[in-house]
Design a protein around this nucleic acid. Structure first.
Lengths: 233, 233
DNA sequence: TAAGTAACTTAGATTCATCTAACATTTTTA
DNA sequence: TAAAAATGTTAGATGAATCTAAGTTACTTA
């Protein structure tokens, strides 16, 4: 046909999976890094599908040697699966940075577009963008960008909630791409690279008061602080 | 699921069709401009699918009021269908120009990537690119880019084969995006905007000898010349 | 540790875009 | 203008990705 769409036809020839398969692989990879073990139900929640859908897709990916699957056990990517995942994540993060730095969009609005761009099948396109951006190491949210071989250079980082009162730190990443969250940070004038000092931590609700570069105080809820990664100054 | 893919889900909410539907609409539009009447078999050839596949998709598009279809008759887009087609063509051509001017790829290699980028669902993305490129009127192959309202500003043009011996003209467009064709033009040093003079036209095979800006003579086959559009100087 | 609950799997149905085989209409041409 | 060829349509099947309903396995807890 143009095979569900022209994209898929090309993918077939080049041994790549469908868009759907790519989304599963990517989600398994990121869940395994967020939560350690990946279960059918977590994947289902993340992809907004029902359990049996995940179950059958996992079996399909297993026959393709992208995941190692034993019934009732944890879902794991094979080496090939990891390689594919890193390739997609590389494309996603390069796309995000490109959208911010070249196209001129805000960090709060690039995720959904990158979610589509990550499926573009063109080495040329992504290698050229990588070059254009000077082989960057992190995307606009501070997440590391795998290089062309899938290698990641990541920094030491701790969640803002772990920082003691009085300490000064630098924001290096945020672990959430939702527009509402990033709009919230924008409204507080917080961005990657920003130096902040933790003034006070409330025992009651875990919220904390910080001082930003402009010496202005702001309060962050525990939920928000937990999604902000920092490095010690 | 992320509904066959995340893309489709969004499309649904925004009333847009699937990737496949977009490809049909776009093909109907361009065939109708190339050949006047669009038939099931021409569409099938263009999309690399069999006749019944086209037949059922046409019926589906008809129920969506995107094409006006009467069995055994010519396939025509409705006004809504045309509007959609122009929106996709706009995205394709903006993408091509962007890939050449910003990403730095050659005009012979951008078609296949644009074929994928044209399905990106983001007004923001395309309007930003349009702005970045200075609201361009033509893509790297000289084809006009519809504006945000679908309006096309096209120039008077004639095929190079219609130019009389001795006349000087300027290349304004090529009506073919294939890499092999564009590589061929590259090898002869021909590009959009280039001024050329027709030296000789062979009656036997329709080939012609031209003189380029650098005063160098080249021979072009009839097939090649027929795909080059020019305007009189 | 047995019962109850949560997580997972299987079975079978649905929708989309495709296919092949068979049939119908239209156009060409002898 | 009737037969042959080309083009178009219908019917029914397939594979991908999903669903619901029902049945299994594993974990929790009383």
């Amino acid at each position: 046909m143009i095979n569900l769409c022209a994209l898929l036809k090309l993918r077939k020839f080049e041994g790549m999976g469908s868009l759907t398969e790519e989304n599963y692989i990517k989600s398994i990879y990121s869940l395994s890094h967020q939560k350690g073990e990946v279960s059918v139900s977590e994947l289902a929640k993340k992809l907004h599908v029902k359990l049996p859908t995940v179950n059958s897709m996992i079996k399909k990916l297993a026959t393709k040697k992208l995941v190692a699957y034993i019934p009732y056990q944890e879902i794991k990517l094979t080496e090939k699966g990891k390689k594919d995942a890193l390739s997609i994540i590389r494309k996603h993060r390069l796309a995000e940075l490109f959208l911010v730095q070249v196209v001129g969009l805000g960090w709060e609005e690039v995720h959904d577009i990158a979610e589509q761009l990550e499926h573009i099948d063109s080495e040329r396109f992504y290698n050229r963008i990588d070059e254009l951006l000077g082989f960057p190491q992190a995307d606009p949210h501070g997440e590391p960008i795998p290089d062309i071989n899938g290698k990641i250079t990541s920094k030491n980082r701790i969640p803002l909630t772990d920082v003691k009162e009085g300490m000064s730190v630098k924001i290096t990443a945020v672990s959430n791409d939702e527009k509402s969250f990033l709009d919230h940070l924008n409204s507080k004038g917080l961005q990657i690279g920003e130096a902040i000092t933790v003034r006070k931590k409330e025992l009651f609700d875990g919220s904390l008061t910080i001082l930003n570069k402009a010496k202005k105080e702001t309060m962050l809820s525990h939920l928000v602080a937990a999604r902000i990664w920092v490095e010690l100054a």
